[in-house]
């Protein structure tokens, strides 16, 4: 009798402990599920503290810093190697000049710089602004220099498309977007390709940014033509830098 009551009592106790059984089953499920529920719950609770825009900004600035440093090093390396190849005999010093008159609309596309032959500028020097090549000096006076912009109808500059390695002639069209006349009939140039000055150029310094191909006309005769969006905003440039042309030493 005693034993029977004791048995019933313990069975009752076991029945009364069902929450613990549920807990044990839950823990077992968590264990078997490799903690999926816990992790999801943690993710839900910690969402306000996830890495946000501030962190991505840090990372981006770190990346930018890294890229700028590498650009500087590669530039220096490039100059050294070009010097070894005797492609460029001296490192040209840049001359900063203010834009004192601009006529970038209308029949002529030119700007006037506030420095001239007294500061060492000569006809043919390349003029660059923030963003890339703007044009070349077409005439100088003692204190001013007229720059023929790349958009002037009379402007002709040899350029190349770095991705395909194809040469072309950048012809001013009187509008803000000059035309790129490619020399090859078969071309794989497409919109988005970057146009730079040719690495083998002698008229303008090598590897200056010029612009981006915006549209391509494959049917143009005699060779395909592309419309190029210049990378330097001519209408907004107030100060430019003049790169003195490399004067090759006179060989006796």
């Amino acid at each position: 009798m005693q034993a029977g009551r004791g048995f019933r009592l313990s069975a009752f106790r076991v029945l009364m402990a069902w929450p613990w059984a549920v807990l044990a089953l839950l823990l077992l499920a968590v264990r078997l599920g490799k903690g999926a529920f816990v992790l999801d719950a943690y993710a839900l609770l910690s969402r306000p503290f996830w890495p946000g825009s501030a962190q991505s900004e840090w990372l981006r600035s770190a990346q930018r810093f890294d890229q700028q440093t590498r650009l500087g090093q590669l530039d220096a390396d490039n100059q050294r190697l070009r010097g070894l190849l005797a492609l460029q005999n001296q490192q040209p010093g840049l001359v900063a000049a203010p834009v004192i008159s601009r006529q970038e609309g209308g029949w002529w596309q030119q700007v006037l710089l506030g420095k001239g032959s007294l500061q060492g500028l000569v006809v043919g020097d390349a003029v660059v602004g923030p963003g890339g090549l703007l044009g070349r000096i077409a005439s100088v006076t003692p204190s001013t220099a007229q720059v023929q912009l790349l958009t002037d109808p009379g402007s002709r500059v040899g350029v190349w498309v770095a991705r395909t390695g194809q040469h072309g002639l950048l012809v001013g069209a009187g509008s803000p977007r000059p035309l790129l006349r490619l020399l090859d009939k078969d071309t794989t140039v497409r919109p988005g390709d970057v146009v730079t000055t040719s690495p083998a150029s002698t008229l303008v310094p090598a590897n200056l940014s010029v612009g981006v191909v915006q549209a391509m006309d494959e049917q143009a005769m005699p060779a395909p033509e592309a419309v190029v969006q210049l990378s330097a905003p001519i209408a907004a440039v107030d100060w430019v830098q003049v790169i003195p042309a490399v004067r090759s030493p006179v060989v006796p």
């Binding site: 209308g106 029949w107 109808p153 009379g154 069209a173 009187g174 509008s175």
Partner: peptide, 9 residues
């Protein structure tokens, strides 16, 4: 040296 934007100018 035809300017494409001539009419506009």
């Amino acid at each position: 040296e035809l300017v494409p934007a001539a009419a506009q100018i």
